[in-house]
Design a protein around this nucleic acid. Structure first.
Lengths: 155, 155
DNA sequence: TATTGTTATACTCTATAACTATA
DNA sequence: TATAGTTATAGAGTATAACAATA
């Protein structure tokens, strides 16, 4: 309603046609919005996406050590330390020193970690369903297949 | 060839099936690999993807100011300062103070900036073609459409 | 000699608040 | 008072090098 007044010429709206024709730009924008949606459904339980992926992988691979987790998740080994520190500090997982090889620490979820992860997975599925609703089920499947194909082919 | 010796049990290969079923994880992995490929084709001319996007948008919108660029590229205004500083320091663009409104600085590519951008766009097209070769032309188009649909629908 | 977890360092990105100069 | 560019600050992510304990 204030459009005709001298508030501001709406918005300049620059020409982005070059970038918008690239997959790299589209994937960056989509990723930012998807992660924002994940944080929206996670709410105040406040786990980062990186922490969520650690919890999810540890749940399916109890006793994995930090190097294996780093390798699997594609992060550098030093990066695992503060990541696991934060989760251990919240009582969601524990580092158990290996008796066989005392350099290793086996990571296990605590019961509280299992409980939180289960709630987070439920919330995550709300987000995932939102994506499927936007794209339609068959296009969502195609998108996932395309992304995975890129990941395997570009490695 | 050393596989049968006790070097290491190859690699533990953790179970990632939960994460691999999610679009969020797939898009993050794909984005990292795509950006790595872009840096590979850019080579030692060493422009970041963010700097490349600034150059590309300024080329199509000569005289845009920093706020409009920040808005268009989805970065915070303060972030534009070091971004443009770096490009101006390399002589690729200039800040021209506006005479009409002395708060504005109009951004323009220098001839050297135009030249570098033109070379970078050629290299970028090598990368983009690699993606199209991996996916096939029609699936590449579908992927781009899917990503754009997500971006518009999730905003 | 190599590996696990760790510390340290540095650089980028992100997010905010606040300052200045202009309007 | 509002806006453009800037500075300052703090948190998170990323990348490397190196160290201690252990193998």
């Amino acid at each position: 309603m204030a459009a005709s007044q001298g508030v501001r010429a709406v918005a300049p709206a620059l020409d982005l046609s070059y970038l918008e024709g690239t997959i790299g730009y589209a994937i960056r924008r989509a990723q930012l919005l998807i992660f924002a949606d994940i944080y929206r459904v996670f709410g105040q339980d406040a786990v980062t996406t990186a922490q969520f992926s650690v919890l999810a992988v540890v749940a399916d691979n109890p006793g994995a050590n930090q190097s294996d987790l780093a390798l699997a998740l594609g992060v550098e080994r030093p990066r695992m330390v503060p990541l696991i520190d934060a989760l251990e500090g919240r009582g969601l997982l524990v580092r158990i020193p290996s008796v066989a090889d005392r350099r290793h620490r086996h990571i296990h979820l605590t019961p509280e970690g299992e409980r939180l992860l289960s709630g987070l997975k439920q919330r995550f599925s709300v987000h995932q369903q939102r994506l499927i609703d936007v794209l339609g089920p068959s296009d969502a499947k195609r998108l996932l297949r395309g992304l995975r194909l890129l990941a395997t082919a570009m490695t």
